[in-house]
Design a protein around this nucleic acid. Structure first.
Lengths: 256, 256
DNA sequence: CTTGCATAACTAGTATACAAGATATTTTAC
DNA sequence: GTAAAATATCTTGTATACTAGTTATGCAAG
């Protein structure tokens, strides 16, 4: 069982006939953008979506064999998908015992908001400096769409547009890597958000807040833009007390 | 090959006899803290360390079979380790072709510094509000150790102490999740840092900058603390020009 | 009825065999 | 000799069998 650790694993790796310098393998290097080609990717996406949907509720056992049969594939890709989810703290895998949809740690929720404010603040500040005219126009269009969806009362589509606005700001900042970090953080909070009932008048408020952010960006006032974004994100503040009673076993409370 | 996607994978998962509500599986939930029990974890750590060491240089092929033989284990755990590395953008795996240590994208380096400033800024601000007397004393002790290691000229130990200071600030802020994000970001920049030769007088400067941060924290001036930390992190600014010539094939330059 | 223990039925971890595509090499045509 | 095609040999992706530890079950003793 024990694995030899004495010799450094890297010391004398036989360097295979190497590609010419400066010529990275030409196979698509950013396969991340493309759609799923591997089965493990498909399973991962399905499970992840189901978890953030709260279709799969916290605590639910995830049995590899069942998923295997459902998809008609072997355990290997299923396992890879589950390992990715474990990496992102969406499932807990207990060796030789079972895999379970992770409970939502309330401490993480608070941290997630802080982290998001920090990262999106950096994005919006940079966007204020670098946003092109066309990018600003696109953001304005998104806000208009939000306004229309708000009037139509389409919650799901509105939420997508909401996300698109934030993505647009990140794009304008030229920080794609930071945006992907923000999206990972969002996964955690999204489960919580799905549990909260849609609040009356919330959409109209969001539209106004987005508009405030964009106005500040357009006027070139970075500090105001950051402040507007912070104000917007602060509205996500977690009110855990209500849900402690509703779904007590969905959350993991601090042990202090 | 195609996988059935028509039916939602989550709709009717047979819910196995479930554990009693409010009783999370009692197996160690924070296995993350413990040492590696699974072989895949050991391989992952070794490879990751070798990559950030730049012992395994960017572009080096990583062949599953070789690692398999080196450790005397099968491909499965090796593969899992490699998949984790791919997740963290430390390797590029090209299906049916090969796996390679990822080149360092200079754009990511810049973003990493921005993200780190944002996140550590949030940490230091919170730490200013919440740090206990003992935590401040610990940070002061770390700075003293840095001073001594600086005098002794021990680069490696100094770097560890440097990291310990930042970890200490994060601990004082009570944001362990944000600290783990910062550490992931650090992985990317660390490879670059390892390539830069130790700069004369750098250590003494770092000690002074850390002291400035701690002074501001102690005096309760959050804005000054954030400013001091930003000033400190700005010193990491990437000077890619030098290395474009030295190791042209270690980096990935923007394609604009 | 309760408690302790043996045992059966789970689980994830690992090893290995095979499949499929990509690259390197050789062969063949010209 | 050159170039293109066939082929051999790589690689990772997948399937499956087996191992080992955990949890549940049922039986027996008190």
């Amino acid at each position: 069982m024990a694995v030899s650790l004495n010799e450094r694993s890297s010391t004398e790796l036989k360097v295979r006939k190497q590609r010419a310098p400066n010529s990275p393998p030409r196979g698509a290097p950013d396969r991340h953008a493309g759609q799923a080609t591997r089965n493990s990717e498909i399973v991962y996406r399905d499970l992840r979506d189901a978890i953030v949907d709260v279709t799969l509720t916290p605590g639910t056992p995830l049995v590899e064999k069942e998923i295997t049969e459902r998809y008609g594939i072997s355990r290997t890709p299923v396992r890879e998908a589950i390992l990715r989810l474990a990496e992102e703290q969406l499932v807990d895998v207990i060796p030789k015992s079972g895999t379970f949809v992770a409970r939502i740690p309330v401490a993480v929720l608070h941290e997630a908001i802080v982290a998001r404010k920090a990262l999106e603040g950096a994005c919006v500040r940079e966007a204020t400096a670098k946003a092109s005219k066309s990018q600003i126009m696109e953001l304005r269009a998104i806000i208009q769409r939000e306004y229309e969806l708000c009037a139509a009362g389409d919650e799901q589509a509105f939420h997508d547009a909401d996300n698109a606005f934030h993505a647009g700001v990140a794009a304008a900042s030229g920080y794609p890597g930071i945006w992907s970090m923000i999206e990972k953080i969002r996964l955690q909070v999204e489960r919580y958000r799905r549990l909260t009932l849609p609040q009356k008048g919330r959409m109209a408020l969001i539209v106004a807040e987005h508009a405030a952010v964009l106005d500040a960006i357009e006027s070139g006032d970075a500090d105001a833009a950051v402040a507007a974004m912070n104000n917007h994100l602060n509205k996500l503040r977690i009110d855990i007390g209500t849900f402690r009673d509703l779904w007590p076993d969905y959350f993991l409370f601090d042990k202090k």
